[in-house]
């Protein structure tokens, strides 16, 4: 299982690029962390999700 934004999902083997596109994310407007390391945008297509991965997908929101 892959933990994405706190939710366990069966996504092992899927590339990050495919997951983002399928999930309706705007890849230009998000940043991704895999196991506490930044995944550069240029590597989304080569990054294959694996069991045990912890993925955070974030964007900007209003804040102080």
């Amino acid at each position: 299982m892959v933990k994405i934004n706190g939710e366990e999902r069966d996504l092992a083997g899927v590339t990050l690029a495919d997951y983002l596109a399928g999930g309706g994310y705007d890849a230009r407007r998000v940043a991704v962390e895999r196991n506490e390391e930044i995944v550069p945008k240029s590597r989304y297509a080569q990054t294959v999700l694996a069991d045990g991965d912890c993925i955070e997908i974030v964007n900007f929101v209003g804040g102080g």
């Binding site: 706190g6 998000v30 209003g62």
Partner: peptide, 17 residues
């Protein structure tokens, strides 16, 4: 202007940017 960083929600298509 300050901003915060939060988990992305695909239901919100609008970006503050």
């Amino acid at each position: 202007i300050t901003l915060a960083v939060r988990r992305a929600n695909t239901k919100e298509q609008e970006s503050i940017l």
